[in-house]
Amino acid sequence: MNCHQCPKNNCTNQKSPGWWKLFRKTPRALELSSQDAQIALVGMPNVGKSVLFNRLTGIYVTVSNYPGTTVEVSRGLAQIGEQNVLVIDTPGMYSLVPISDEERVARDLLLKTSLTAVIQVVDAKNLGRMLPLTFQLIEAGLPLLLAVNMMDEAHRLGLKVQQKALAVELGIPVILTSAALNQGIDELKSALAKCLPSERVAIPA
């Protein structure tokens, strides 16, 4: 809910707000070369995509406790392993067939951008309801990782997620996270690192 996202969209501020940030952020944005890997955070509304985006990039986008907080795409850089990666936060979507405008934003981004990895964030408490989107993303042939988020709340409800079984059944990496408590972020990063094209490894003669 957030106008301040408009200046933030492209890392640099377009207008007056926060001109001092220009000095801080532009250099970071400039570091991004066109070859840098791009990854997207997708998922249903109110599952914690924006919190995870904050954790990965250190850039603040407004987070709220209701669906539909994010209405625009936000971009930021994250350090994954040795590489700089462009992370894209998207508005929530229920399925690949969009219902509202902001869902269309997220869907079109997936449909038309070549992404190195896609992280689907799901709410552990409502796993069953979130998985149909997972199936659709897998069908689309996207390089998918599943971040099962809000594990803390799931625990409180007495829910346990079998991480390995889920990964085997889906055939994609599955990471358990509680983004709000900063748990599972390192695991997510190392899983991401495996999806990235390896650095120019110096092959010894």
């Binding site: 796993l127 069953g128 979130m130 998985l131 149909p132 997972t134 829910l159 059944e169 889906l170």
Partner: peptide, 12 residues
């Protein structure tokens, strides 16, 4: 399919 999978991997 989702419900089937959930029943396998999610324990209450």
């Amino acid at each position: 399919q989702a419900r089937r999978l959930e029943s396998i991997v999610l324990q209450e």
